[in-house]
């Protein structure tokens, strides 16, 4: 009987740890999706935007009109 109890406790504890790990991972991913530095995959976006600025396609917002 005690062996069964120990096994149930072990399974429950393992499940708890896996669930906690999953939740931590999920929150980290959500956080990094909302805020993050530009990585290798997104740096080219900044490059493209700067190119648009250089070509005059983008003008700074002056508070009067939205480009």
């Amino acid at each position: 009987m005690s062996e069964v109890s120990e096994a149930v406790t072990l399974v429950f504890f393992s499940f708890l740890m896996v669930a906690a790990g999953y939740e931590i991972k999920r929150r980290q991913q959500k956080l990094r999706a909302v805020y993050d530095v530009l990585d290798v995959e997104t740096k080219h976006i900044a490059a493209g935007l700067e190119q648009m600025v250089q070509q005059g396609e983008l003008r700074p917002y002056t508070g009067e009109t939205v480009a």
């Binding site: 999706a33 530095v37 530009l38 740096k43 900044a46 490059a47």
Partner: peptide, 16 residues
């Protein structure tokens, strides 16, 4: 440093 030389960061408000 970095491959492209471009550095910065972003805020994706659409996920909130």
């Amino acid at each position: 440093r970095g491959e492209s030389g471009y550095h910065g960061f972003r805020l994706c408000l659409g996920l909130i």
